[in-house]
Design a protein around this nucleic acid. Structure first.
Lengths: 155, 155
DNA sequence: TATTGTTATACTCTATAACTATA
DNA sequence: TATAGTTATAGAGTATAACAATA
């Protein structure tokens, strides 16, 4: 009966030292925090964050090939195969023959995928809002801006 | 406040839809971004982010038991066993018999662990600084503050 | 030759559950 | 009975490398 509890940022009486000064550690903790409710809420659909991302991207960019999806998501092609396999098994996505290239498949959501994605997105947005509801609107906007700017800094 | 012309880690010509409005998605991307260089820099030591966190926490709170470490890190006890096994195999940490409880172990860094942790922390802080160097000092402070505030919001 | 999708394999991180030895 | 550590097992998520079919 191990119980991983919910992640707590700081256990009282414990020294965290340099971890407290690292922005990377704060980002990581925030990510865990934001994902917790998110993952729980999506469990009934068999959906995880990467699967959700793939569904959104394919829904808005129908006809994508697996290699393109992998590139967009920043993962290996073999990872895209596994992702699409899972979504296909859930009945949310399908491989359609690509007319212009017999090696490739065009990805598309199934009708069930389109219907459920709308409801899943509603839940996701609701959870996202709930988690950040302790920040003022200005703070939410500023946090989003700074996170995007962080990602935009070149190597 | 928001900067619509800010570069986003997007593949040109691809629609991201709702993902762009989710703070959780921005946090996730930022976390991946911050961890990239971090993971690469630590590879020579056999150290990963969770292993690094465990080393820092044990170094500052010597005598912790595995169950306490698991609780502090927000993972299951079985995960703490694997973590400590790996650090013990690397020669960085050791289980010492707990005088007051023959079931338990007191965790401590080895001399090598203490020496290497100082150098590892230097690299980690350097990478952390490098990644956020595109933000002004005020922006870095504000981002850190908002991330901590996000984690502090009760469920 | 190069590319597309696939498979095989491996590693990290995480989980739950059952076990042991103590408490 | 409860707790500390362990082991067994599983499942995501990721990677690299090799392969067949096609370009």
């Amino acid at each position: 009966m191990s119980d991983p509890d919910l992640f707590v940022a700081h256990v009282p009486g414990i020294q965290y030292g340099v971890l407290d000064s690292l922005l990377g550690y704060a980002v990581r903790r925030a990510q865990i925090r934001v994902y917790e409710a998110f993952i729980l809420a999506l469990e009934p659909w068999g959906i995880t964050p990467p699967r959700y991302s793939a569904m959104v991207i394919v829904s808005l960019n129908p006809g994508l090939k697996l290699t393109q999806l992998a590139k967009i998501m920043g993962i290996a092609r073999s990872g895209a195969v596994i992702l699409v396999d899972a979504l296909e098994e859930l009945g949310y996505m399908e491989r359609q023959p690509a007319p212009e290239d017999r090696r490739a498949f065009s990805l598309a959501l199934t009708p069930k995928g389109r219907t459920d994605l709308a409801r899943i997105s509603a839940v996701v947005q609701e959870q996202d809002q709930r988690v950040i509801s302790g920040l003022s609107t200005a703070e939410q906007t500023e946090l989003h801006r700074l996170l995007l700017k962080l990602c935009a800094i070149p190597d």
